[in-house]
Amino acid sequence: MKPDVAQVLADLAGRVARNAAPQIPAAQRAGELGLSAMLLGLAAEMWDGAAEILVRENAALRGLLASGARVSQDNARRRWLVELAGSRDGSLRLGALQSANAELRVALIALHAELERRDDPEAKDLEADIWRELVAGAERRRLSGSPV
């Protein structure tokens, strides 16, 4: 969801305002109108699934962090991971879900960096789980018209 729906809608508002001016050439206005229609369709699709995607992703990230707390060799990181793994989404507002997601991702990055430096099977297994979740997250966020 990057850019997020609010950014797309703000961009569209600017496009509408600029294209309302009478001196805008018809061809440019037509192009902007087509782009605006496409962006509105994408924004509608992103908006419809945003909360579900974030709730599912936050739960998956918390699960990975809980696993990370069990295998981390850094005591401070372990305490941080335990705290975040035990947190819950207190609101379904997109801003709150996105904020929680960002915090969880920071911890996941720190955990992942630790795991990449290690050669033990426990670390490699969890690293593989992290990569599987990152791929699954990309799939959840893929838009219906995406060629990939």
Rank of each mutant, 00 (worst) to 15 (best):
A50W: 05
M46H: 03
A76E: 07
N75W: 01
L54F: 14
E83A: 14
E133G: 09
D74Y: 00
L111E: 10
G41K: 15
L111M: 03
V82D: 14
E114L: 01
D129F: 12
V55E: 06
I130K: 13
L40F: 03
A110E: 08
K124C: 02
R117Y: 11
A69G: 00
H112K: 09
G49F: 04
M46D: 03
L134D: 11
Q98E: 05
S91N: 15
A51W: 00
R93D: 14
E45K: 01
D89P: 07
S67V: 00
L42Y: 03
G90K: 05
I109L: 07
A60S: 07
A66H: 02
G63Q: 00
A113D: 15
R70E: 10
I109D: 15
S91C: 05
L108A: 14
H112C: 14
E122T: 14
L65K: 05
L54E: 06
L64S: 06
E83S: 05
I130S: 06
A85D: 12
A51T: 08
E57Q: 07
L104K: 11
A44K: 13
E32R: 07
L64E: 05
L40K: 12
I53A: 02
A102V: 01
L42C: 10
R132G: 08
R56W: 00
L40Y: 04
A43D: 07
A128F: 12
A37W: 07
R56L: 12
S36F: 00
H112A: 15
A123F: 09
A113Y: 07
P121D: 15
L40H: 10
W80Q: 11
E103P: 09
V82E: 11
R56M: 06
R132T: 08
R88F: 11
L126A: 01
